[in-house]
Design a protein around this nucleic acid. Structure first.
Lengths: 291, 291
DNA sequence: GTCACAAACG
DNA sequence: CGTTTGTGAC
């Protein structure tokens, strides 16, 4: 069984929220921001993250619960869509909206949001799932879309790196990088989460010099961020590592901690994803700079 | 505006629940017993009624929430149906199921439940609405069904009275007896709630010597038990008196109180009907017996 | 299993 | 407005 005790949500350390140079960023696939408003408000109040990436808000931009989020002290930059997908970036100061889509012809699916604040980019992504619909299990259409989407993301990231931009790229990547990232690798063999066409495009992100914050710092093993609602997946700890925080070198050098707040998956009416968080010390030059 | 303050739910008097001969019966159209389980549990715990008539439980007999009701100390006798209608009688001791339908050919709509306990009958009814469907506003089919149903009910009641059976007949009668029983009589003129064919059949119940407990004892004026979910009907007190408790002479002679618990209509996620209650003193012979 | 949505009903 | 049912998604 899984009670999430090793990662149950707890009060923030005193240096959270930007004091003393501490800076924290969270990514959370909330599976409907309206249904998750109580949990999200609770998270914001307790951890006071500086930047929050939300995926699957499942509402249109105009219907985002701005009043509730703003009353807690955050401003929301939103790319919404009816029923499906939808991403948002919450920040304490109003950012510049750099882009609300990748350069891809996908009928305007709300999966990408790039914001800039104090010269840094905060990029929220919801990578396509890629599995065929139940009505047409042999269709490759969604897989091809996922491949194209990851190609476009790699193109964008390559450009930011080339331009020397400091950024954090977080979200639900819908990729199982290693067999050890899923409770039952055999069950996902050949799926859009594991096939070579997808894994290779995912790994290309690293070639741009990015660091996976959770892989770097989280003590959790196995490192899961998603547990299906069905089949008692949470109780059996049948999870998958899907949610990621990728750091450009500037942020990677200043990373102090990263973890999965699995306690939020244990709550009543939880999202099927837990929030993932990374913490930075932005107050001083990193240790290795002086070596 | 309507805050229900004159009838807000309050703790029961010390003699509730069968102590000292006090005996109480409630009728409540819950509009889905599953959706109303919290309110119903609250009601049962606070008022401890001896008999409860539920209408519009909107679930099949097997899907009734027996565990929750039984854990509170009641046994449920249920005539359920998928999606629509459905009636139940809750009692503290297991009753005999006398009938779960009237003698009428209606495709088995779950609208009638007659139980016997300690030689008394407790009869729960959900009278057909009778209004035509929106798709065919001139259809008389449902009105005719309502007429037939009330005829069958009258036949049944006549027989019980003739047999000298003591009983309480409670439920949602879907009849506006007098123009003063509705906030806007003009709006219901010619409707299946008020037309002569229905009112005359409804009034025939009285000819069997029954007493309307609420009309007899409730201080409420106007006496409403239903407020539409739409058009802010509750806030404007645009109500209708639809839910009734009819008493055979034995019960009428021992009636001590009857009222509408409108406070339950004021709650969040309320049913559109309030529970109606009558209280008896069954410990001694009634006053007028010795006169 | 938990979402969102669209009908139908009252 | 607030139920139920059905569909589709993940």
């Amino acid at each position: 069984m899984n009670d999430g005790s090793s990662n149950t949500a707890k009060p923030p350390p005193a240096d959270c929220g930007g004091h003393n140079g501490s800076f924290s960023i969270v990514s959370w696939n909330v599976n409907s921001v309206k249904s998750r408003l109580a949990h999200l408000s609770d998270y914001l109040t307790r951890f006071s993250p500086d930047v929050v990436f939300l995926q699957e808000i499942k509402t249109e931009t105009e219907s985002f619960p701005y009043p509730e989020i703003e009353s807690l002290g955050w401003t929301a930059t939103v790319k919404g869509q009816k029923s499906y997908n939808g991403v948002a970036v919450l920040t304490k100061k109003k950012p510049v909206l750099v882009a609300d889509a990748l350069d891809i012809d996908d009928g305007g699916q709300a999966r990408y949001l790039e914001t800039e604040l104090d010269g840094r980019r905060f990029i929220c992504v919801y990578v396509p799932n890629g599995e065929p619909p139940a009505s047409d299990p042999s269709s490759k259409e969604r897989l091809i879309y996922k491949e194209k989407w990851l190609d476009a993301l790699n193109g964008r990231i390559r450009k930011l790196v080339a331009d020397g931009v400091d950024f954090v790229l977080g979200g639900d990547f819908n990729v199982i990088e290693f067999d050890s990232d899923v409770y039952d690798p055999a069950a996902f063999k050949g799926s859009a989460f594991t096939v070579q066409e997808i894994r290779s495009r995912f790994k290309a992100l690293y070639f741009n010099g990015l660091t996976d914050a959770l892989r770097e710092k989280s003590p959790r093993s196995p490192l899961y961020t998603y547990w299906d609602y069905r089949f008692s997946a949470w109780e059996k700890n049948h999870g998958i590592f899907l949610d990621r925080l990728f750091l450009s070198p500037y942020f990677a050098d200043r990373l102090t901690a990263a973890d999965v707040d699995a306690g939020f998956r244990a709550l009543e009416k939880a999202s099927d994803h837990a929030p993932v968080r990374c913490v930075f010390d932005l107050s001083s030059a990193p240790e290795d700079v002086n070596e």
